[in-house]
Amino acid sequence: MNENGQRNFFVEIYSCKSTIRDVKAGVAQGEAHISRLYVYYQKWGIRINTSKSELVSFRRPVTNNSRCRSAAVARNLVLTFPDGSRIRAKKNAKYLEIHFNDLLCFNPHSKAVITKANIALYRVHPLLKKKTGLSKPTKLLIYKQLLRPVITYSFPIWFTISKNAMEKFKVFEKKILRICTNLQFDRKRPKHYSNRRVYEEAEIKPLDQFLAQAASKIITKVASHPNQLMRRMTN
């Protein structure tokens, strides 16, 4: 609720169609649905903030000419609201701090998370230097409590990313672990330490293994949940 006492609602219209006719029909249905909602919103003094609303048309990868044409139409879609405001379809979107594109791939998310993690590393890097005198367990605790949660946020959703995308997270983790264990490259001590040696010194599992173990625990809990709808999610 803003200063004027008006509530702002976010509306996401998702259209996942295969032909140009169906894509346009999906937008028409969305506009009709919003028109019905406007009657209810006006009754209760609710306003849709169109400046923060996004239109995403999910699609399949382009494999033939018909899908190529439908993908072009989907990216040029415009959703018109009853008050005359419009929003255009986007290729990339963000929902609850999760970045994705119209193919439901999380490559934008990996790039955004790495950028955010680098900013967090820049802020805590003075604590990880050798001159600080902090012990190795303390530095590793800083990584586990402050930096790794930035990477692993909402991981059950994007855990199925490609190996190349996961490798970006692992490279970032190995860079931090080398700093925490004082095994990074030093001109005064030009000696290379393998990644295996770094993980042995840190005594933690690689990020992909850590996420796989955590995801397995979550799936086990959901599979034994008393709610039947929750249990069906694991099927």
Rank of each mutant, 00 (worst) to 15 (best):
Y199E: 01
K217S: 11
T181Q: 06
M233S: 15
I218T: 09
V198T: 03
K217E: 09
N227R: 13
K217H: 09
N235G: 13
S194Q: 09
L183Y: 04
Q213H: 11
R187C: 07
E200Q: 15
K191V: 08
R197A: 13
A223Q: 11
L207M: 15
L229R: 03
R187T: 09
E201S: 14
R187F: 10
M230P: 03
V198I: 05
R178T: 03
E201T: 12
P206G: 08
L183F: 00
C180E: 04
P206F: 04
N235K: 14
N227C: 13
D186F: 11
E201M: 14
S194H: 08
Y193M: 08
N227K: 14
Q228E: 12
Q184F: 09
A223C: 08
R189F: 07
N195P: 01
Y199W: 00
Y193S: 01
K188Y: 00
T220H: 11
R197I: 13
E203D: 15
S224P: 05
N195D: 11
F185M: 10
K221I: 04
V222H: 05
T220K: 13
R178Y: 02
K221R: 10
P190E: 06
A223N: 11
L207E: 01
E203Y: 14
K188R: 03
S224M: 09
A202V: 11
T234Q: 00
I179T: 03
A215N: 03
C180W: 00
K205Q: 12
R232A: 13
Y193N: 04
T181N: 02
N227E: 11
I176Q: 04
P206C: 04
E200S: 15
L177E: 01
E200K: 13
L183W: 02
D208H: 06
R189Q: 14
A202F: 02
L177P: 02
A215R: 00
I204E: 07
P226N: 06
K191M: 09
E203C: 15
K174H: 06
E200A: 15
Q184L: 08
K174D: 02
V198Q: 02
K175P: 01
R232V: 07
N227G: 12
N227W: 06
D208F: 01
P206A: 09
L229N: 00
K217I: 10
E203I: 15
Q184R: 10
A223P: 07
T234D: 03
I219T: 13
L177G: 00
P206V: 10
R187D: 08
H192V: 07
M230A: 15
M233N: 12
A214F: 05
N227Y: 09
T220R: 12
L183G: 08
Q213N: 11
T181G: 06
N227L: 14
T234L: 01
Q228F: 06
R196P: 05
K175H: 13
I179Y: 05
V198Y: 00
I179G: 00
R189C: 14
V198K: 00
S216P: 00
S194I: 05
H192W: 02
F210K: 05
N182Y: 02
E203K: 15
V198S: 01
Q213T: 12
D208S: 12
S194V: 06
Q184T: 07
I179D: 04
R232W: 07
Y193A: 00
T220P: 07
K188P: 02
T234F: 02
I218A: 11
I219E: 12
I179M: 00
M233A: 15
P190H: 06
N182S: 14
Y199L: 04
K217R: 13
M233Q: 15
T220I: 10
A223E: 10
L177R: 01
Y199S: 01
L177A: 03
F185V: 10
